[in-house]
Design a protein around this nucleic acid. Structure first.
Length: 436
RNA sequence: GGAGGGUUCGCCUAAUGGUAUGGCACUGGUUUCGAAAACCAGCGGGAGUAAUCCCUUACAGGUUCAAGUCCUGUACCCUCCGCCA
């Protein structure tokens, strides 16, 4: 949510931002509604002030006749307040609906466009592996090795589910273990920031295993409930499944105020993510690229507003560091206005090379949401001078399990159908060289 | 699932239905070579240049001129029983 004051004072910017994101909004209507809201609020507050004052006098006043008269008068005022409050309630409901539909404004460096075709590659890194044979796709390799079974999962749970088995499971935990070590090591984080020429406070990430269920009301505040058909709902319990650890990490400090000196606060959340993939019918139906359920290590950072851009750069630098350790070729992509998330002002994706598909595929994302989510969540920071303002929030992938495993399987595949284990993961996998 | 108890500032805590108390912690200041201690001030949120006003006792309603307090509902926490990885 944007600040209503900001909207009133910058309607052209807000309107232009929404247009870039291909979202239709009616700012004039919102401002008329807001005038009405402020008018009613002022009237009600004035009446309440009168009631408070007179009530106080009723206690002190000794004249019984006067007391009765004042009580009668206040009874009338009370009715007036009640009716105005009903009006205000309706106005606020309508106002909130409109406010929730206004997207965050894209940053100036976000490429404009309708969809992902307008995304812009910022840089790429790593040499694509050369094969003496035609590289296969991950599901062929995984099936042959008996470590990915989508056939059985199809019978038991349906499409877009899988059984991961054996060394692939060990590799999942190896990846998570390696990344948690990086994220909790101050020296490593300092090095990553320094090498990327980013100046941030390198305070470590706190590992968290968050709930995978969330109240729909909270999800609205995270601005991640724009498309209800994408979520698994449990109406009997008034709960829904999260699509990312971001949803229960970012909301951890709902209705809380940070102290300036305590920021940045960084979390590394490991959880399963659940996605209905309602809009992706027929897309990526093979293997484990697009699953209803996958595990993911996610970063979430709360920072001072002036540092949030650097924080996002830092999160991207961490993503790149991990990929470089794994020796996987990737490219960094600025996501276009039409493709980026509703609450984002800047979205950077990492696409990793998948030799079996012979293309780069999205494996990571990093969302800078500024004060957009925090304003809805009422998560704020008290500055050193005592002023209170919305904190800034960033979230980003560290490892999305399905896709990272695919990248490793396809880039490290061998002529004999085995998979070479990346050097950095060996120590977490009992020193093993190959999955075969 | 059953029974009972609870929720007031970061922590603790007060409030015959009469307009949220005090302590600890914290922040700033005085003092000091520096620190501790002591003393002074601040210390829920919002609007406003300000005076000031409104809101705030888990949440949502209700009764009342007036609700932390009375009534109804909900959430969450704790204890015990049952079940359970």
């Amino acid at each position: 949510m944007l600040d209503i004051k900001f909207i009133r004072e910058n309607k052209d910017i807000v309107q232009a931002g929404a247009e870039k994101k291909r979202v239709k909004i009616d700012i004039e209507k919102l401002i008329i509604l807001d005038d009405e809201r402020l008018r009613l609020l002022k009237e009600i507050e004035a009446l309440r002030a009168e009631v408070n004052k007179v009530s106080n006098n009723i206690v002190r006043d000794q004249n019984p006749a006067l007391k009765i008269q004042l009580i009668e008068e206040m009874r009338v005022v009370k009715e007036e307040i009640k009716s105005k409050e009903e009006n205000l309630k309706k106005v606020i409901e309508e106002w909130q609906k409109m406010m929730l539909k206004i997207p965050n404004i894209p940053s100036v460096d976000t490429p404009e466009g309708n969809d992902e075709t307008a995304n812009k590659v910022l840089r790429s890194s790593g040499d694509k592996p050369q094969f003496s044979f035609t590289p296969k796709e991950h599901y062929e390799i995984g099936k042959a090795l008996g470590i990915i079974d989508t056939d059985t999962a199809g019978e038991i749970s349906g499409a877009r589910y899988s059984y991961l088995k054996g060394d692939l499971v060990i590799m999942q935990f190896a990846l998570i273990q390696m990344c948690l070590e990086i994220l909790t090591n101050k020296e490593t984080l300092e090095k990553i920031a320094k090498d990327a020429n980013i100046s941030v406070n390198p305070s470590v990430f706190l590992p968290v295993i968050p709930p995978v269920f969330i109240r729909p009301l909270v999800q609205v505040k995270m601005a991640r409930y724009m498309t209800p058909e994408d979520h698994y709902m449990f109406p009997n319990d008034d709960l829904m499944l999260i699509g990312s650890a971001e949803h229960t990490l970012g909301s951890m400090h709902m209705n809380k105020i940070f102290e300036e000196k305590d920021l940045p606060i960084r979390y590394a959340g490991y959880s399963t993510a659940f996605r209905r993939e309602a809009g992706a019918a027929g897309k990526d139906t093979n293997g484990i690229l697009r699953q209803h359920q996958f595990d993911k290590l996610e970063m979430e950072v709360f920072s001072l507003p002036e540092n949030s851009m650097q924080e996002q750069n830092f999160l991207v630098a961490i993503q790149e560091y991990v990929l470089q350790l794994l020796k996987l070729p990737y490219q960094i992509v600025a996501v276009s206005t039409g493709d980026m998330g509703f609450p984002d002002n800047r979205q950077i994706d990492v696409e990793t090379w998948m030799p079996g598909q012979n293309k780069y595929r999205e494996t990571h994302s990093s969302d800078s949401t500024g004060g957009f989510q925090s304003r809805r969540l009422n998560t704020r920071v008290r500055r050193a001078d005592g002023k209170i303002e919305p904190v800034h929030m960033n979230d980003a992938t560290v490892v999305a399990i399905g896709r990272m495993l695919i990248a490793i399987i396809e880039n490290y595949q061998q002529a004999d159908g085995s998979i070479k284990i990346p050097e950095v993961l060996k120590k977490y996998m009992g020193g093993k060289e190959f999955i075969k």
